[in-house]
Design a protein around this nucleic acid. Structure first.
Lengths: 205, 205
DNA sequence: GCCATATACTGCATGTTGCAGTATATGAGG
DNA sequence: CCTCATATACTGCAACATGCAGTATATGGC
């Protein structure tokens, strides 16, 4: 079966309709990218690999002299897609450079930390806006609205969570003397509160 | 300045103390991996690149005949780290195979979807547990507890968000006839609710 | 006609990953 | 003491992913 990381997500899109490569690239940017980021460069080679494996078919079409490859899923492709759902999923990973900067904030100044946090806020506001636009636009696949809404619920909540955290963090660091000295900020109490949340215990325990 | 993606996060760790490569690899797994996932294989080459750039220094030490390289940050390294904090951060990305499966759930069955969601729940429970253990263990860098707690607040909240979503999603799909037919599930009302959340409007607007 | 942008790609150097392997040290158990 | 599993400490390498720059043709506005 497919060896590359993008094979199944791409089969997922091909299962919705046929696409030209350029259209695929655009659709990946619009929807898949939120939870399956990949370089556009790959999107021109990967469908060809699917064709080699019999999971997709390609036709070449022309606009004047400009060629375009259009891909369509095969029955074997649909079957592979269905089986993929059964397989254990890879652990979730998140690449968050700004949070790394927060984690190493004591290497810089409070002003720098403020900027980083503001950047985090701005990004989540922008992503929430983008999600909003997608939710309000005419749905490209109306019959799939229910699964789309199910997934977007999580996407939106994650973005809201990041935004709320950034607002909270902004208020908290105001109490710090410096990035190296939190002054009277209740570090220990917050640590204990987080620990309790991570280990829910019965009242008597 | 450094060309590789791991340079600055590694400098961040080197700024805390000196490390052998193996120790670095372990520490990356413990802390950085949550928001800066990288392959262990890289951790043996990258510090050498930092040394070449004058951002770190290495000493070779021995346990009997077994060699070990220990790395320590330089002043230039500290400066580079501080400047990194000022640079625009790369957009956050999240690789979530299970959510991709949810997104393409209509290619499979309700039972498959239930399994995927249960897997999501199990993973977040495990990660919350791990965070709890970290919060309760003796802090490796007590003087940095405040920045650590600040970052972990976001980590924990994201995990809780995923867990809550999975619980909610589990109740919702119970109402679906199939992954292709949500029956009377209020798709449109939920879509509208999400849209409203994504576009906060004043009451008169 | 010109030009900016869209559509539709590809070559390629560089960076990243996963895996399998090597070498030495350590400690438990027989 | 010996054996063996695991830890410590790496490296080689094939395959894959990425970013970037480039090419070619189509489109539409001025």
């Amino acid at each position: 079966m497919p060896q590359t990381r993008n094979a199944y997500p791409l089969l997922g899109l091909l299962n919705l309709r046929s696409w030209s490569t350029y259209e695929l690239a655009q659709q990946v940017q619009r929807s898949l990218h939120w939870f399956w980021p990949t370089a556009e460069r790959r999107l021109y080679d990967e469908p060809k690999l699917l064709v080699e494996l019999g999971l997709a078919e390609a036709t070449e079409e022309f606009t004047g002299r400009r060629a375009r490859r259009e891909y369509r899923i095969t029955r074997a492709g649909r079957r592979a897609l269905r089986l993929w759902i059964n397989e254990p999923s890879a652990p979730r990973t998140c690449e968050f450079e700004a949070l790394a900067k927060v984690f190493f904030a004591d290497a810089g100044s409070i002003h720098q930390l403020e900027s980083v946090i503001d950047g985090i806020a701005a990004e989540s506001i922008d992503r929430i806006k983008q999600l909003g636009e997608m939710l309000e636009a005419e749905a490209p696949f109306p019959k799939r609205a229910h699964v789309s809404v199910l997934a977007m619920q999580l996407q939106l909540e994650q973005e809201e969570g990041v935004l709320h955290w950034s607002q909270w963090a902004r208020t908290q660091i105001k109490q710090w003397r410096s990035t190296k000295d939190p002054g009277d900020w209740p570090t220990e109490a917050l640590r204990a509160e987080l620990a309790a949340r991570a280990h829910p215990r019965a009242p008597g325990e």
